[in-house]
């Protein structure tokens, strides 16, 4: 029972983790709390249905196409909406992403309707047995993908020029600019990266929950809580936070009752922020005077 709960908690947590990574990357490079992150994934899931069901494409081709579309969406959002207001204050950037949220919501409702749709199952629904814990193949599969994407991101941030430039931008935007890093391009790339992650999240989560314009709201909010849990500046922190939240809410759901499941994450974040306002492994940023 315990192992079971922890394992399926890790599976959900790994999807929160991907969302949280995207949130952290966008936040630390652009100061933007991107509330539309979940909706990128939602659009991705709907596109996945279109490609798989209506066009009858292969699953892997679908993933490729969906991720490409989400990257383009990320680029577009940056170029058209975020770039003109890039130097505004924090609240302006935040509320602008609420605007994007509304627009994507409306667009999805307009094209694909408000009611929930089933996503064609892409894996064998029979559960597998691992060391006494039973887990559905979909969850297992998602964990595998999340690990792979995590590895790709790790490689990107450590071994490519763009990834290192992105980290430089995080550390000190002005110094990065002085060193000749093309800041605008890197910011564009950041949003593209958010789209890349969202595309995968959308396609991976779609078979588990039904597809609808509101499908990502809860995952997004949990992703946020995870990002803040880890301190909003640290990718590792976000991943740890996401896995902790996934496991904790599954345990609470299993041992206390399913009605407290959703609240667990928020109780955790409220308690954490009351005692550690900078997050779990966050850094206290120097105050500006």
């Amino acid at each position: 029972m315990l192992g079971q709960q922890i394992l399926s908690g890790l599976a959900t947590g790994s999807l929160y983790a991907l969302t949280a990574i995207a949130v952290v990357v966008v936040f630390r490079n652009t100061r933007t709390i991107n509330l539309a992150q979940g909706d990128f994934a939602m659009i991705g899931a709907f596109l996945g249905i279109v490609f798989l069901k209506d066009w009858g494409l292969n699953y892997y081709v679908t993933i490729l196409l969906v991720v490409a579309c989400c990257i383009v969406l990320g680029f577009g959002v940056e170029r058209i909406i975020m770039r003109p207001i890039a130097n505004s204050d924090w609240l302006t950037l935040f509320t602008t992403t609420i605007g994007i949220y509304y627009i994507l919501h409306g667009v999805a409702g307009l094209f694909w309707g408000r009611d929930t749709k089933a996503f064609p199952l892409t894996f064998d629904p029979t559960p597998v047995d691992i060391l006494g814990a039973v887990i559905s193949q979909g969850h297992l599969y998602n964990m595998g993908w999340a690990l792979a994407i995590g590895a790709v991101l790790y490689a990107f941030f450590n071994f490519t020029k763009q990834g290192v430039a992105m980290r430089a931008l995080t550390d000190d935007p002005e110094a990065a600019y002085m060193m000749g890093i093309p800041v605008r391009f890197i910011v564009l790339l950041t949003w593209g990266l958010a789209g890349f992650i969202a595309g995968f999240v959308g396609i991976l989560i779609a078979p588990i929950i039904y597809v609808s314009p509101e499908m990502m709201d809860e995952v997004l909010v949990k992703g946020y809580v995870a990002a803040v849990f880890g301190g909003l500046y640290s990718i590792q922190g976000a991943v740890i936070g996401a896995l902790l939240i996934g496991v904790a809410e599954n345990l609470a759901g299993g041992y206390i009752g399913s009605h407290v499941k959703t609240a667990t994450a928020f109780v955790m974040i409220v308690v954490l922020l009351a005692f550690r306002p900078q997050g779990l492994i966050g850094i206290q940023k120097r105050r500006e005077i």
């Binding site: 909406i81 509320t95 602008t96 609420i98 605007g99 994007i100 949220y101 509304y102 627009i103 994507l104 919501h105 409306g106 667009v107 409702g109 307009l110 408000r114």
Partner: peptide, 14 residues
Amino acid sequence: LADFAFIMKGVVLI
């Protein structure tokens, strides 16, 4: 046109 209302809201906000 609830969906248009959503889009309008977003566009106005932006």
